[in-house]
Nucleic acid binder design. Sequence first.
DNA 1: CCGAATTTTTGCGTGCACGCAAGTTTGCGC
DNA 2: GCGCAAACTTGCGTGCACGCAAAAATTCGG
Lengths: 209, 209
Amino acid sequence: MTEARPTLRERKKQATREALRSAALRLALERGPANVRVDDIAEAAGVSPRTYNNYFSSREEAIVAAVMAERASRVAAAVAARPADVGLADAVVDAVVEQYTDPGDDARDALLMIMTSPALRACYVDTVAAVEGPLADAIAARCPGIDRLTAEALAAGVGAAAKVAVRGWLGSTTQSASMPGFVVASGSLPALLRSSLTALVPALDAAGR
Amino acid sequence: MTEARPTLRERKKQATREALRSAALRLALERGPANVRVDDIAEAAGVSPRTYNNYFSSREEAIVAAVMAERASRVAAAVAARPADVGLADAVVDAVVEQYTDPGDDARDALLMIMTSPALRACYVDTVAAVEGPLADAIAARCPGIDRLTAEALAAGVGAAAKVAVRGWLGSTTQSASMPGFVVASGSLPALLRSSLTALVPALDAAGR
DNA sequence: CCGAATTTTTGCGTGCACGCAAGTTTGCGC
DNA sequence: GCGCAAACTTGCGTGCACGCAAAAATTCGG
């Protein structure tokens, strides 16, 4: 065992978190997201309702977390893993697209459910924002002399462009009141992501040197 | 009168909205934001508590709205107003900085209060996001042949960079749990905004042609 | 000016987020 | 093992957001 096993307390915490995540996802898929109360999730996971909110700060968060677990850190890792001789722009764009190109592990229908429910969608785009921190680190690591603020601005820009692509993917309606819950797939998500991120390539190139 | 007076109904709606805004701001400044319930705001504005939520979807929103009213559209207008022979990058950067350089109308202490309260800060950065729509329009108007998705990606990037600058301005802590409510001014906001936006200038330049 | 259609306000009920103060479990040095 | 300190869980109370349907206000055609 190369990994020192984390303390009992830590393992229990992760177990509880996982139990809540999967219970939330399962119930949401069975009954539809509107028919799941946090009390139900808590009961299914064997903890008190109050405890649920010690782990997740909204009803939607657990459901989305079940699908998006660790995607944020994987983007950063993917950027770091790119060979040093490819430009920053290519490294970042490819890494981001890669993570969204194959969501299809076993979460196909979960993704569809998330895209269908406005509340879940909102929570999902917040998840996209979570890549910004790790991504900023990865960018900074790749560009030795770079300003910290610049790295964060670029990472935030990438996150924002990704959000735009996702919103565009769902149809043209931003999140306005027009036809909520109406989903139109207008092109493939990877292609949209690439288009959207292309706008930022010059900025990434400039920073990469 | 060049403007046809809007219907009575419309005028009343705006009056109610304004009454809620100013009541919220006044009470928050008097008692501190934590000691204002939405019931208080509603009562001060002479409407039912339920009506408050027909106008604002969170307790913080009215307070922030009182300060930020119409700033979003002003940024877009400022971009549109720049002479056509200045580059897109300069037009956008100057317009954004301009709007945040002089918040000092009479809202100095209101801004300080917003920066001091975590919940209000969060709502404030959401407000920054509201510039993105109008800004995308302005960018699209300035660059005739530009792709719509590209314009939105750029606008979102600008918004994101502005958010980073604002966060950085409040001290290095993002919105983490470390010392909430502790404010450190680490440079002037306009300077930070300029630095942050500089990272995106190459992208704007590339799109401007 | 009158009544029907539309919009806004309001009260009510439900579910949710979270601070607080016990109660309970785990970690750790002895 | 023992016991104390730290961390986690739980119940409770408060305030908040919002769907729904009844009531009040506004508009508009005649």
